[in-house]
């Protein structure tokens, strides 16, 4: 019992700190950055996730203001860094673009989300 109590104290100590918690694949950051204004059309949209992705079920789309898909549909998970998803873009006219993503992490969880960026003149 004494041993168990000691272990429970250890549990307290450990939980008093903050763990490097990870699990589902969430968007860590992106270029163009979430909500950013960029000058000139970017060549691609690159998304960094918090976890490795399953290429078979991970996708991203870039839509213009009217909801029309504008990216080059060459979505791929970076083979060197499986936490990165990217798609290339043609020359985009100035405006607001919406990036929507749906990814499957290697622990079988689906997450999805979207954000916008502005291309300024």
């Amino acid at each position: 019992m004494k041993r168990a109590l000691l272990l429970i104290c250890a549990l307290d100590l450990v939980l008093a700190c903050t763990g490097p918690a990870r699990a589902h694949a969430f968007l860590d950051h992106a270029t163009p950055a979430v909500g950013s204004k960029v000058r000139g059309s970017p060549a691609q949209v690159k998304l960094w996730f918090t976890q490795e992705l399953e290429p078979a079920f991970s996708s991203v789309q870039v839509l213009d203001r009217n909801g029309k898909r504008v990216d080059k549909t060459d979505v791929k998970v970076d083979s060197a860094d499986p936490m990165v998803l990217q798609v290339s873009l043609p020359q985009l006219p100035p405006g607001t673009y919406r990036v929507t993503w749906r990814v499957l992490s290697v622990d079988t969880h689906v997450t999805e989300g979207d954000f916008t960026f502005d291309v300024a003149r």
Partner: peptide, 19 residues
């Protein structure tokens, strides 16, 4: 039980993180 406690703490550290 010893194994469960120790490894439970490690798992909680990663999946919960804080109070």
């Amino acid at each position: 039980v010893s194994a469960l406690l120790l490894t439970g703490i490690i798992n909680a550290w990663y999946l919960v993180g804080d109070w």
